[in-house]
């Protein structure tokens, strides 16, 4: 796997539930547990935006959480990467027609990686994080 050589540091992840149905959230958590176990690769789920390199957002943007998502993104140190997990985070998904949904996460913050699926499978979430790591390395190089 060519991506392995990209693992120069251990990316820490901040997960925020936009307005997801829980489906993608529990799949994000499932990535941490023994079957998938991303911690073996140094990927740690942190609760603190100031420790995080990658922001994983599930669910879409609504009136209320716009501010929270922007806040969390602002608090993360540069360089940072945003991964939109699931159909809702990418475009609003099945809820795009609901009155309180404004659309995907890219309405509010720049998104680097889109992970499709409803709910996104752990394998594709891990793949999204790996691509996020590649984007992160690129940003490191540019800022150096």
């Amino acid at each position: 796997m060519s991506h392995v050589s990209l693992f120069k540091r251990s990316p820490w992840i901040l997960h925020y539930d936009g307005s997801s149905c829980n489906g993608c959230d529990i799949e994000v958590l499932a990535c941490l547990t023994p079957l998938y176990d991303v911690e073996r690769l140094g990927v740690v789920n942190t609760g603190n935006p100031k420790h995080a390199d990658i922001l994983l957002v599930t669910g879409s943007v609504n009136e209320r959480n716009i501010e929270i998502i922007q806040n969390l993104h602002r608090q993360m140190p540069d360089p940072k990467v945003v991964v939109a997990v699931g159909a809702c985070a990418c475009s609003g998904g099945i809820f795009a027609r609901a009155y309180n949904i404004q659309g995907g996460i890219d309405h509010v913050i720049p998104v680097d990686v889109y992970v499709p699926g409803c709910a996104a499978r752990p394998e594709s979430i891990i793949d999204g994080v790996v691509q996020g790591i590649a984007a992160l390395e690129l940003k490191h190089k540019r800022s150096a």
Binding site: G59, N62, R64, N65, A98, Y99, N100
Partner: peptide, 14 residues
């Protein structure tokens, strides 16, 4: 209200 989507009202559109 952070996760409110307006699911019940979607019944009028789906």
């Amino acid at each position: 209200g952070y996760i409110h989507r307006g699911l019940e009202m979607m019944v009028e559109r789906v």
